[in-house]
Amino acid sequence: MSGGAYKISTDLRTNERIRAREIRVVDGEDGSQIGVIPLKKALSIAEEKGLDLVEVAPQAKPPVCKIMDYGKYKYEQAKKAKEAKKKQNIMKVKEVQMSIKIEDHDFNVKVNMAKRFLKNKDKVKVRIRFRGREMAHKDLGYELMDRFAEAVSDLGKVSSKASMEGRHMLMFITPISDK
């Protein structure tokens, strides 16, 4: 649990762990304020209802406590965190490699592969490797990269233009979000 909002829920003080003498008490069932009362009285009210006294705002003066079922609260928080994690899209980087002597059919196969990656909301790294004397023809590499970017422009946009790194030319294409 690395998110700040979720960490708070595990550090809440409950029942006898609450240190303040006087606390502001809120009824967890209907959200009504019971008022500022001594800790012992709040604990007895919670015990009568068969619920827990949970310190929800320890930094407040006096600290705010809620009468609720702590086990159920923790379960709900864990469920919310799990849902939030599920909705989060982790973008992976997929790589497509070519050479500057690539044939048209092979080029189309690479384009279709990149389109499939972009549909899955993955980032695509396009790499052209230069061998031997091919390094003298970087202009052909840039033309090939432009052609590739144009071919996948309906699904992705170039996030980092073609650039040389040693004997490789790299370009990154990110998926176009629907939002």
Rank of each mutant, 00 (worst) to 15 (best):
Asp106Lys: 07
Leu118Gln: 10
Gln97Arg: 06
Arg133Asn: 13
Ile102Asp: 07
Arg129Gly: 14
Phe107Asn: 00
Val126Arg: 08
Glu83Tyr: 06
Phe130Gly: 04
Asn89Glu: 12
Val109Lys: 07
Tyr73Gly: 09
Tyr73Asn: 12
Val111His: 07
Lys87Val: 02
Phe107Ile: 00
Lys86Ile: 12
Lys94Ala: 07
Val126Phe: 14
Tyr70Asn: 12
Lys94Ser: 12
Ala81Asn: 07
Phe107Asp: 00
Ile90His: 12
Arg127Val: 15
Asp69Leu: 04
Lys85Thr: 10
Phe117Trp: 07
Asp106Tyr: 02
Lys125Asp: 11
Met98Phe: 03
Tyr75Lys: 11
Val111Leu: 06
Lys82Ser: 12
Asn89Met: 07
Ser99Thr: 09
Arg127Tyr: 04
Asp69Glu: 10
Gln77Val: 15
Lys80Ser: 04
Phe117Arg: 07
Lys72Gly: 12
Met113Val: 07
Leu118Met: 07
Met135Tyr: 06
Val111Gly: 05
Arg131Lys: 12
Gln88Tyr: 05
Ile90Ser: 11
Gln77Leu: 09
Phe117Met: 04
Lys82Tyr: 11
Ile90Gln: 11
Val96Gly: 00
Ala78Lys: 09
Ile100Met: 13
Val124Gly: 10
Val124Gln: 10
Phe117Asn: 11
Tyr75Ile: 04
Phe117Leu: 01
Ile102Trp: 06
Asn112Val: 00
Ser99Arg: 06
Lys80Gln: 06
Lys110Val: 01
Glu76Pro: 06
Ile100Ser: 10
Asp104Ser: 05
Met113Lys: 15
Asp106Ala: 09
Lys82His: 10
Lys87Met: 03
Ala114Thr: 02
Tyr70Trp: 04
Gln97Ile: 00
Lys115Ser: 04
Lys115Phe: 03
Asp104Lys: 07
Asp69Tyr: 05
Gly71Ser: 13
Arg116Cys: 07
Phe107Ala: 01
Arg116Met: 11
Lys72Leu: 14
Lys87Glu: 04
Gln97Asp: 01
Asn89Lys: 14
Arg129Ala: 10
Tyr73His: 15
Arg116His: 13
Lys121Ala: 05
Met91Pro: 04
Lys86Gly: 06
Asp69Val: 03
Asn89Ile: 14
Phe107Tyr: 00
Gly132Arg: 09
Met91Asn: 08
Met91Arg: 15
Ile128Lys: 05
Ile100Glu: 08
His105Pro: 01
Lys80Gly: 02
Lys79His: 07
Lys115Gly: 05
Arg127Asn: 11
Val111Ser: 07
Val124Glu: 09
Asp69Phe: 02
Lys86Pro: 01
Glu134Thr: 13
Gln88Leu: 11
Lys92Gln: 10
Lys121Leu: 06
Leu118Ala: 07
Lys121Cys: 03
Phe130Pro: 00
Lys79Arg: 15
Ala84Glu: 08
Lys115Pro: 03
Gln97Pro: 00
Val93Arg: 12
Lys92Leu: 14
Gly132Cys: 13
Arg116Lys: 15
Lys125Val: 09
Arg131Gln: 10
Ala78Ile: 03
Ala78Phe: 08
Arg127Thr: 15
Lys87Pro: 00
Arg131Thr: 12
Val96Cys: 00
Lys86Met: 11
Lys80Thr: 04
Asp122Cys: 01
Lys119Trp: 03
Asp106His: 03
Tyr70Thr: 02
His105Cys: 02
Asn120Ile: 02
Gly132Lys: 09
Glu134Trp: 12
Gln97Ser: 03
Lys119Ala: 04
Asn89Leu: 09
Lys115Arg: 14
Lys80Met: 05
Asn120Val: 01
Glu76Gly: 11
Gln77Arg: 13
Arg133Leu: 14
Ala81Asp: 08
Ile100Asn: 09
Glu103Met: 03
Asp122Pro: 03
